[in-house]
Each structure stands twice: as C-alpha cells, then as structure tokens.
Simulated scan of single mutants.
Amino acid sequence: MTLRPPLRIPGITTLPPSASGMRIGLFGGSFNPIHDGHILVMEETMRRLELDALWVLVTPGNPLKNNAKLPSLTERVTAARARIGHPRIRVTGFEAEKGFVYTWQTIAFLTRTMPDRRFVWIMGADSLADFHRWERWRDIAAMVPIAVYARPGSGRRALASRAASVLDHAQLDESAGPLLPYAQPPAWIYLQGRQSALSSTAIRAQKGLTTA
C-alpha cells in the first residue's frame, strides 16, 4: 500500500467525534482556498440527505495535481474552520496522520474502524467527470454511497463520464436523498440545486497564484 510519512499535528489531524448510527458526509479536497461554493455544496447535501454531520477532509495533497506550492495542512485546515460557521460541519486533516495518499484508503479505514456509522462520500459533478482517474475508483463506489452535487458547466460531462456509465445501474432518483446513507453500495445520487460558479482555481488565478 502506498503511504506518505505520517504527520501528526495536535488539533489538526484528529478525527471529529461521532456516535453509532450517525449519518456522516465526507467531503474531501485540497481546499486551496475554501470558498462559498464549497460551503454551498456542504450545506445543501447536509439538508438534502438529512445528514447528522459532515466532515471536511483536507487532504495533504491531491495525487492528480502538482502540490509543490500547496499551503501547509495547518494553514488550510485553520482557514476552512474559520470560514465555516455550521455547528455540524467539522474540518480535519486526519489523512495526514495516517499517511493516506488516496481516497480509497481513507474510506476503507473509516468503514472498517467505524462500521456502525453511515458514511456518504460527497463530490462535485466536476469530480465525477474525472472519477475514473482516481485510484481504485470502483472500490470506492463499492464501499460507500456517493452524492454528486451539480456544478456549473459540468453536468453534461459528468453524466456522460465513464464512471457514470459504469455505475448507471446504481443511480438513485434525486428524491431518494434521505435514503442514500442507508443504501447498499454501489449507490449514488445526482443532486441539482443552487450552484456557485466560484472555484479555487479561479480564485488562485485572480491572486496570481498557480498552486494546485
């Protein structure tokens, strides 16, 4: 298994508290920087799926991107916590402490160590469009239900993507959102609703930054 050197930072890499039976959304990313578009997705998926909590998983670095100039994990976790005001949305960089590189490692760990929680992986439609490039993406879909939230300009590409085609049989109707945490994977839902055109890439470009 490919791992990074573990990085333990008190208060940054600890997992949020949870209890048996909780429905927990998992929203991962570099969050460089976090913005209102991210928060919209978090709040809408929490409401539509009737989640008890949502964990923002700030990754040490995206394996599909150049992370050479990525701000430190502490900076990004701290900024996300300062920006998010929802009491049931918690931010953690715990993947760094475990040395995880890929999403499948994170999900395998959480579902193995907390089998009595109802985890749902959350991603934007732009991520679904490239989901087939993720390491062991089929295993991810087999381990946990997935909620895909619409993103401006990504809907057609996402729904015509390789992953969407392979998982077509497992797509649930949008109205089944509250049932998704209880669905046997593979199971996924495409949520349409309020959208934001903001992106971390565009924000960095405006500031003259090129960090992934």
Rank of each mutant, 00 (worst) to 15 (best):
R204H: 03
G153H: 10
L110C: 10
T113S: 14
H86K: 08
Y190M: 04
F100L: 04
G99Q: 00
D126E: 13
K98D: 02
W104H: 15
R151Q: 01
A158L: 07
A163W: 00
W134L: 12
A96H: 00
I84C: 02
R117V: 05
T113W: 07
L128W: 02
I203M: 13
V91M: 10
T106K: 06
D139P: 07
K207Y: 10
R138F: 09
Q171L: 05
D139G: 05
E97C: 04
Q192T: 15
A197G: 15
L180A: 03
R204P: 04
T103Q: 08
T111M: 07
D139S: 14
M123V: 13
D168N: 09
R194G: 05
S196T: 12
R133C: 11
R162H: 09
A147F: 06
R204C: 09
A96D: 10
G177Y: 03
S196Y: 09
A108Q: 10
Y190G: 09
I203E: 02
A183D: 03
S175W: 05
S154L: 01
A108P: 07
P152I: 02
R112C: 07
T201Y: 06
R204D: 04
Q184N: 11
G208T: 08
R156H: 07
Y149G: 01
Q184T: 15
Q184L: 14
L167H: 03
G208M: 11
D173T: 07
F94K: 00
V91G: 00
K98N: 13
A142H: 10
G177K: 03
Q171F: 03
L180K: 06
A163D: 02
I203D: 12
Y102I: 11
L159M: 10
S199C: 12
D130E: 14
I140Q: 04
A187M: 08
M143H: 10
A163Q: 02
D130P: 09
Y182C: 01
M143R: 15
R156S: 08
F100Q: 00
D116E: 15
I203A: 13
Q184M: 13
Q184R: 14
P115R: 10
A163T: 01
D130V: 12
F131D: 06
L198N: 11
D173S: 14
Y102C: 02
L179H: 05
E174V: 10
W104S: 08
G155Q: 08
V91P: 02
P185E: 06
V144M: 09
E174S: 11
A187I: 01
T113D: 14
